[in-house]
Write a protein that binds this DNA or RNA. Structure first.
Lengths: 238, 238
DNA sequence: AGCGCACTACGTACGCTGTACGTAACTAGG
DNA sequence: CCTAGTTACGTACAGCGTACGTAGTGCGCT
């Protein structure tokens, strides 16, 4: 009657403990913490079922009692990270509050650089995600807009945060894995881009590159993007 | 002297043909096309070096003459998809043009649902990417802003397009892989969310869900997000 | 109280992955 | 013409996710 449990089952719908059988040796929090520890230390590719099981000190296949598919392990990791959000009383200034939320998310991602890679392809309704979403809505209380628009604001803002931080991390890791200095790397890049631009096929691109001088202020770029998005929803700014 | 080629070498910097040795049997375009064909038909996970080689009709390891790492194969795929952008003369209305570009990107992604998954972690300076970027800057010619700001606009817009379309695709694939009807799936989801909301921990979330009725107009949500972003850069709108 | 079943634990095994390495054939530049 | 650099590709290895089978454990129901 119950039939086969279909693939897309969401882990948060499963009870952590059913009551029957031996007491589980680990909690979901234990498992998530172990996986996070590995990802922080060795990168996301270091997170394999075998490796996590070893970190916990149990057999590989025992993990599958807790986590039916690896994807669900990822879900646990994202939720665990979500716990790092410090929910604090809204100030009444929704722009400031949302900006703070965004900056905190960015900081968390820089602390756990594997998070953006996991953000796409994850269900998005973990307990801590719900908690964070609720908090955002609370911060937006002073804003007189329907909830539909407010959720659109939150979604847009979160999307921007993820995209931008993801790019920051990718760039940072690219330059980190360089055997050469950053200057040399830039030289190589400029050389390639220069060779393309020199064909004359990309005049505006060339102009854009000429215009820019010195290193880019990544945090500045990020903040400006956020301000733009907030502007777009601010009744006093339009 | 030349030493080991370091890992992060960019494939676009390599010449496709050096002149020495036997004439290569395939072009980069051939390889990209084969990989794209597989990804379209069997999903991105179907794209393995062996599978692509088989599709081309050559030995697995021969592929490594063309593509030093699998990541570079992904780069080829993204570039191949970029060729589907129809570059047309700017109309003079930069908002309309950019909106068209965004909608076209979205359409391409819906045609090749694996694209968003690849977009993060890819270098982003393939020939067709440059071509598209140049075209965007051309569309923005009527807008009186420094190039730095214009590139920020393009980046923000592209980020939004990728994020939103990625979500659309994820949702679509989730419901597609359901053995149940969409209604039933919604019922299950509501049941879970309901159970969470019923705890009283998420009053605003609950209100937001109550407010919404009927299915969401995804394209509408997308268009509205785009308009917001464009608003944020439109001098006449502030 | 005690039976039975649902659960935990985990070893083995399968099919798959990316790719390092070695060898043979080939061709363009000096 | 020769030879160095390239293409082609078979073999092999380490690692992956996970299906499956078996043994042990303790809650819930009768």
């Amino acid at each position: 009657m119950a039939g086969r449990a279909a693939v897309p089952e969401v882990i948060w719908a499963r009870p952590e403990r059913t009551g029957r059988g031996p007491r589980p040796a680990y909690t979901r929090a234990d498992i998530a913490a172990a996986a996070v520890r590995i990802a922080d230390a060795e990168g996301l590719d270091g997170v394999s079922m075998r490796r996590v099981a070893a970190e916990l000190g149990c057999g590989t296949m025992s993990l599958y009692n807790y986590v039916p598919r690896k994807e669900d392990l990822y879900e646990l990791m994202i939720d665990a990270i979500g716990a790092e959000h410090v929910i604090q009383e809204p100030s009444g200034d929704w722009r400031a509050d949302m900006l703070r939320n965004a900056m905190e998310t960015r900081a968390i991602m820089h602390r756990h650089t594997w998070v953006p890679r996991l953000m796409s392809g994850v269900y998005g309704f973990s307990p801590n995600s719900l908690r964070y979403l609720e908090h955002c809505l609370e911060c937006l209380e002073p804003l007189d807009l329907p909830y539909a628009t407010k959720t659109e604001l939150v979604a847009l803002l979160n999307g921007v945060v993820t995209t931008y931080t993801s790019n920051e991390i990718a760039t940072a890791e690219r330059t980190r894995s360089m055997p050469w200095s950053e200057e040399e790397e830039n030289a190589v890049r400029i050389a390639y881009l220069g060779s393309q631009v020199a064909t004359g096929a990309y005049p505006r691109l060339a102009a854009a590159f000429m215009e820019q001088s010195g290193p880019i202020d990544l945090e500045g770029v990020f903040r400006r993007a956020l301000e733009r998005v907030l502007d777009a929803f601010d009744p006093e700014r339009r």
